[in-house]
């Protein structure tokens, strides 16, 4: 004759054990998913593509002149919304994870104008995670001083030899 109370106690104990084992297995699954998740990083490539797009927007195909006077006169131009000016509409969330900074330098190395757009905090995140192991959250980047030699028409209408220094950062997609 089985003791019914003892049987019920055993069943409860079994359920408790199964729940405990499931929890341990879930932790193992979670940890393995975090550490063994294979991530393909294309953000540096995206940064290079975006750099080309922005430079082409300012100096079409690299053969035109960067006319700062004309840019200033353009109603749609805002030096802090260079992505929007270049057609990267933020309505769809495009551009949310991008940061662009273009510095126009004259031949004496003096900064004439700075154009930028996006979240400048990405630069800080990049510096912070530069050394660490967590590459997934480090923004992709493309940065080049003296990247592009151009003829700049300054605000007074003078043509001068200049250079573009470009920095583009692309954040993760999560």
């Amino acid at each position: 004759m089985r003791n019914k109370r003892a049987a019920a106690g055993e069943t409860i104990l079994t359920i408790y054990r199964i729940v405990l084992i499931s929890f341990i297995a879930l932790v193992i699954l979670g940890l393995s998913a975090v550490f063994y998740d294979y991530y393909i990083d294309v953000r540096d490539t995206e940064a290079i593509i975006l750099t080309e797009e922005v430079v082409n927007c300012l100096v079409p195909k690299g053969v035109g002149k960067l006319d700062l006077k004309m840019l200033e006169a353009d109603d749609s131009f805002d030096k802090n919304r260079i992505l929007e000016y270049c057609g990267f509409d933020k309505e769809d969330g495009i551009g949310d994870r991008l940061y662009v900074k273009v510095i126009v330098i004259n031949d004496a190395g003096k900064e004439i104008k700075t154009l930028q757009d996006g979240d400048s905090g990405l630069g800080w995140v990049k510096d912070l995670l530069e050394e660490g192991e967590v590459t997934k959250y480090r923004p992709g980047s493309f940065e080049r001083d003296d990247f592009f030699e151009v003829i700049v028409i300054d605000e007074k209408g003078n043509e001068i030899n200049g250079k573009l220094s470009v920095e583009v950062l692309v954040d993760h997609e999560f």
């Binding site: 199964i18 084992i21 499931s22 297995a25 879930l26 193992i28 699954l29 393995s32 998913a33 063994y36 998740d37 294979y38």
Partner: peptide, 14 residues
């Protein structure tokens, strides 16, 4: 059974 299920889920993920 429980570990098998989770193992399959991990394999599926990776």
């Amino acid at each position: 059974l429980i570990f098998g299920m989770f193992f399959l889920a991990t394999v599926g993920r990776t």
